[in-house]
């Protein structure tokens, strides 16, 4: 990480602190206050806030506009950007736009296929994939150049992130793929939500063995379960998520009214366990439509108060 951007997240990691990020999902309407309310709940407990980009291919208020709202509130947004809906012209244009508002974290994603969303009949774009989007942001930031070759003066100061899913198949490809994203220019990684600890630790070890944890900051993805139904749904229905049977059993083993608390406890235990792992540089809390629980998790996991940077 030789390039220093104004990103607080980057500074936090550079200072050796365990970083904490979370996310807000924009509404399926133009009610921008929803973002602000969600952000208000978590702002003192996280270093940066991801804003999802039409996640699961459902049309929502755009990530860029929501990030600008967060920025105007004095928060540090992470602009999630998927390549599904926009070509390289639009993507680069949005990067300029984001940087013009001082947004300095970007998470480069390919995005779910539109088949899952509310417009399965839409055309998809996929002009670039996530790795190529990482390359593109790096080109713009480090060389002041667009893919088309145009040179420009004011470079977007982006701290570049990518996703990694250690649980998708084939497993043996997952570390090489991480290496590929790092080679393309990824500086931080937010992982898919982790439930299968053994598999995750094996992935992390393989990444460590290749020296990748020295080159990229890995934030472990944590999603608290609300109830056993959610555990089962994620296990059976969400591609690329690995929920071991014992987790489903544990969630189902407590009375319904106590399942939410059990889910929170489980998330905290996961954080405690992963804190000890070499190569984990922070946590990415994806409390899906449950943002109000983020403060409690951060606090009980011993990650509060957040370190102050000068």
């Amino acid at each position: 990480m030789n390039n220093t951007t104004p990103s607080r997240l980057e500074k936090m990691l550079a200072a050796g602190h365990l970083a904490v990020t979370s996310e807000v999902g924009p509404p399926r309407s133009c009610d921008g206050s929803v973002i602000e309310q969600k952000a208000e709940l978590i702002k003192d407990y996280v270093d940066a806030v991801n804003v999802t980009d039409n996640q699961t291919s459902v049309t929502r208020l755009c990530s860029l506009a929501a990030c600008i709202r967060l920025k105007l509130m004095g928060l540090e947004p992470v602009l999630q950007m998927v390549t599904r809906d926009r070509n390289r012209i639009a993507l680069q244009s949005d990067i300029f736009g984001a940087a013009s508002f001082g947004i300095c974290n970007i998470l480069c994603l390919t995005g779910d296929h539109q088949h899952f969303g509310d417009h399965p009949n839409a055309v998809n774009v996929f002009d670039l994939d996530s790795t190529q989007l990482i390359q593109t942001v790096r080109l713009m930031r480090d060389e002041g150049r667009l893919l088309g070759g145009h040179q420009f003066e004011h470079r977007p100061q982006m701290f570049i992130g990518a996703a990694a899913n250690p649980f998708a198949d084939p497993f043996e490809i997952r570390v090489p793929r991480l290496a590929k994203k790092v080679a393309a220019g990824a500086q931080f990684i937010q992982t898919q939500c982790i439930y299968n600890m053994d598999k995750f630790k094996l992935w992390l070890k393989l990444a460590r063995d290749r020296g990748l944890t020295e080159r990229v900051a890995i934030l472990a993805g944590i999603t608290p379960m609300k109830n056993v139904g959610m555990a089962r749904y994620m296990k059976n229905r969400v591609p690329g998520i690995d929920v071991p049977d014992e987790i489903v059993k544990r969630m189902g083993g407590v009375p319904k009214e106590k399942q939410a608390a059990e889910g929170i406890r489980l998330a905290i235990e996961q954080i405690q366990e992963l804190k000890e792992e070499e190569g984990i540089r922070g946590f990415h809390l994806m409390a899906i439509e449950w943002e109000e629980k983020v403060p409690e998790i951060v606090e009980r996991a011993g990650l509060f108060p957040r370190p102050q940077l000068n």
Partner: peptide, 19 residues
């Protein structure tokens, strides 16, 4: 399904596509 040149994506499961 996503025309990725640097795949596979995170939705690949047991050799099958997320779609």
């Amino acid at each position: 399904s996503k025309r990725m040149l640097n795949g596979p994506c995170g939705g690949s499961e047991k050799g099958k596509c997320e779609v």
